[in-house]
Every structure is written in structure tokens, then in C-alpha cells.
Design a protein around this nucleic acid. Structure first.
Lengths: 101, 101
DNA sequence: TCATCATTTGACAATAATACCAAATAAACT
DNA sequence: AGTTTATTTGGTATTATTGTCAAATGATGA
């Protein structure tokens, strides 16, 4: 399927980070974390999917370097590691709005 | 697979736009278009995949509202419709760099 | 009109992503 | 130690994405 083409690594790496953001639940999580750290249980209530699903979404964000976690007692708290991604939402929103016309 | 949960539409829409960007070839195309309009043939040479593959990537970007196209003679030229997405690359790059440590 | 060049579309195979359930870990409390 | 609560991991079914080839479309020029 894939004829081994050298795709400059830089773009592959960027794509990996972008891909981690490119999901409604994960965008929702990022948005929530912009207001402070949250435990997995908070986030699972927010997005409404199974706890294991939410945990996997968080693992994706963590692997991409977008969030970090800390266990405190029984709970694991996640927080946003890269606030600059929030600036982007204005731009994305402008695209969404423009598309509506 | 999907227990019909109401995921605020806003995040779905944002995800659709983000998803359109979240691919190495498409990021490469966006980067190239930031330097001016290009025909499909230029872009296919750049990314190195089959012309039909590149055409489909462009269709994805167009559908997301990120690029616009114009046919001039035999060729179709694409240009970036939303330059603000470029600002984001600095942020993404900082994540990529941080991940390397 | 016919041939050619540039691009898009359709059909399809391969791979990746997503969500669930069940089981495994981890910490705290009895 | 055993129980409870919070989270992660493994297995698996479903769906989405990606890329190729072949055929279709569009515009130009002989």
C-alpha cells in the first residue's frame, strides 16, 4: 500500500502531535484541562464515554507530549503541558464559522 | 461500537478541521502553500505519492475549508485559505522538540 | 475531431483508530 | 489480608483512513 517514500521526518512528527489533538473527545479534554488539572473521573463524566476509553484518549495525549499526569492517592490527575495549543482554537473556530456560509 | 453520546457539536467540527491537517503529506502541502499557490503537479512532485493520492489529500483540505482551488487551463492551482494555521506550527514544533528530551 | 496532458473519481486492499467489556494494577481503608 | 475505589491494559469488533490502479473528466492544441 505504501511505496516507502521518504516523507521528511519533521512533518511526520508534527502529524503525530496534530493527530493526537484531532478527535472530538480529546479536544474536549484539552479544553477542560485549560481550566486546570482534572482527574480521570472528572474527564470521563465530561466526555461521557467508558472510563477505559477516556483513559486511552489520555494516553494518546500523554504520548504526544500534550499532557502530563500525576497520581495522588487513588486518583490520577492530568494537566495541560502545552498551553500554546489553545491559541490555535481561535483559528480553527474561524474556519468552522467560514465553512458555515 | 458507539453508544450515541451527544458530543458537543463544536468539538466535532473542530476535530474535523484538525483531522484534515493531521497527516504528514497534508502538513507538507500546507507548508508549501504558505509560500504561494501551487498546481497539483507541483505538489505531487513534492510529496512523492501518486497523483491521485495527492488529489485526494487536496480534496480533504478543501472540504475542511483550509484551501481553495482555481482551474487555469489544464492545471488546477491550490492556495491556502487560512494562513493563521501557520502560527500553530511553532507551537507544535516546540512539542516535538520537548518530546525529544 | 483526435490526441494529449492535468486532474479527479471509483473500486478496492491494507492499515489505523475507536469503543466496549473484562481482567489487571494501584492505592487506601477495614 | 481482604475490600473498595480509581485507573490502565488486553482482546476484539466496527469503522475510518490511506494509497494504488484504472477509468472518467476537462481543457488544450494538432
Amino acid at each position: 500500500m505504501h511505496s516507502e517514500i521518504i516523507m521528511p521526518q519533521q512533518f511526520e512528527e508534527r502529524a503525530r502531535v496534530m493527530k493526537a489533538m484531532a478527535h472530538a473527545s480529546r479536544l474536549m479534554i484539552i479544553d477542560e484541562l485549560s481550566r486546570g488539572e482534572r482527574c480521570v473521573c472528572d474527564l470521563q463524566e465530561l466526555v461521557g464515554y467508558d472510563m477505559s476509553t477516556v483513559s486511552k484518549h489520555l494516553a494518546v495525549l500523554k504520548k504526544a507530549g500534550l499532557v502530563e499526569d500525576e497520581r495522588r492517592g487513588k486518583q490520577v490527575y492530568y494537566r495541560l503541558k502545552v498551553p500554546c495549543i489553545l491559541n490555535f482554537f481561535h483559528c480553527i473556530e474561524s474556519v468552522v464559522e467560514a465553512n458555515k456560509r
